[in-house]
Nucleic acid binder design. Structure first.
Lengths: 214, 214
DNA sequence: TGTATCCGATACATAGTTGTATCGTAATTC
DNA sequence: GAATTACGATACAACTATGTATCGGATACA
């Protein structure tokens, strides 16, 4: 006899798959046309379901958006955290001081490294501007990212004996802002992922250069 | 007999007033709830008209948004240009090198210096991400702003004998990105115009410090 | 004062979206 | 293999927004 737990798991498995497909589809559609212009039906079409599946899994479109925003934030932070962990392990970096900041580029590019990713983050950001709860979550996630980047900055400085003109936190904050702004401008030009990465990289290198004391 | 031109002017005057009231109302509503969530009726209510007035003056909501975006861009650029002109006239600046960049803060704060302004710019930006025409206009307006700021940077450098670690254009670009990012984060916190200005000012001063060679 | 025109209000037809209630099927349990 | 449950599909009702067509009043002009 299959235990009740097992049955719940099995049942939940299939359910989780539809939820996930709906979330993935929603991420695409939200990125493409925005939360408000995205009809529930458009999301379901994309996922290969009808609206019945949607309302069986989510209360409203807003609830799904909230959940999606949370997932995106969690994933970004986890990716940064794990990358920072790896770097802590590795210890020494055999890069030139300036190039060392390519690491930070990698970290930031861990998410939102293509046009749709940038669009989705922008969509989340603008709704955070209008929703205090979402704003708190957004700022907290960003603060966590900033801590991760600051740690890498400090590590690089220590390993390479680099002196900075501002604190690691300040450097990290500016890097995040510039990275985001550059990514948005690149996405506006409709460039592909490769070119997008190239452009953000260039701007980031500029900021890195600025933060390093001669 | 009033000339045909006069009558046209008169007629256009009143018409222009309603157009302007509709544009002003739309700017508010777009900032508050976003383009897609803003119904034509909500805009008309705010302006004190019914939808009849709207459709008598604009084809669609999108057309109005396009026009509004153009107006905002034109105003921003004009404000910066005129401020730059004033500074060119004045010539010498009797400020400390770091504080001199407060001028740039003034320039950037010429528009979007409150929560609604930041929201409207964000709304325009995210739609530029999805509309190539709007994107081109947005990037062009930003390039013009950048040229203005770069000119001020160069002027300050010349007047004060300051050496920079990057070109004036690069400095201006980073300042614009950081200013925008800081403004958005401040607006997310729901702060008032005063506090918003304080925060962007702080970040901008940090960037200014970074760009100045010791 | 009569008349023509302009312009915003009103009424209406239509389309699209949402959420719920019900149904049918496939999977699960014993 | 019969019964039950789960879950997505379908059908439906209500609401909202849009755009157009028409109306009415105010204004301009002779």
């Amino acid at each position: 006899m299959r235990s009740m737990v097992d049955s719940e798991v099995t049942s939940t498995r299939s359910r989780e798959r539809t939820r996930q497909r709906l979330l993935d589809a929603a991420a695409q559609v939200f990125a493409e046309v925005g939360l408000d212009a995205a009809s529930v039906e458009a999301i379901c079409d994309r996922a290969g379901f009808t609206r019945g599946a949607f309302y069986s899994n989510f209360e409203t479109k807003d609830e799904l958006f909230l959940e999606l925003s949370g997932l995106v934030a969690t994933e970004r932070v986890a990716a940064v955290r794990s990358r920072v962990g790896e770097l802590e392990q590795e210890g020494g970096f055999d890069l030139t001081p300036t190039d060392a900041f390519a690491i930070i580029e990698q970290v930031l590019d861990l998410s939102a490294d293509d046009r749709l990713g940038v669009l989705l983050m922008s969509e989340i950001r603008i709704h955070a501007l209008r929703n205090p709860d979402l704003a708190a979550a957004y700022l907290e996630q960003e603060a966590e990212m900033q801590r991760g980047v600051a740690q890498i900055v400090a590590d690089i400085g220590r390993a390479k004996g680099i002196r900075f003109r501002v604190t690691a936190d300040e450097a990290a904050r500016i890097m995040l802002l510039v990275w985001e702004g550059a990514a948005v401008r690149a996405a506006m030009g409709g460039v592909d992922a490769e070119e997008l990465r190239r452009r953000t990289s260039t701007e980031l290198a500029l900021v890195a250069q600025l933060t390093i004391a001669d």
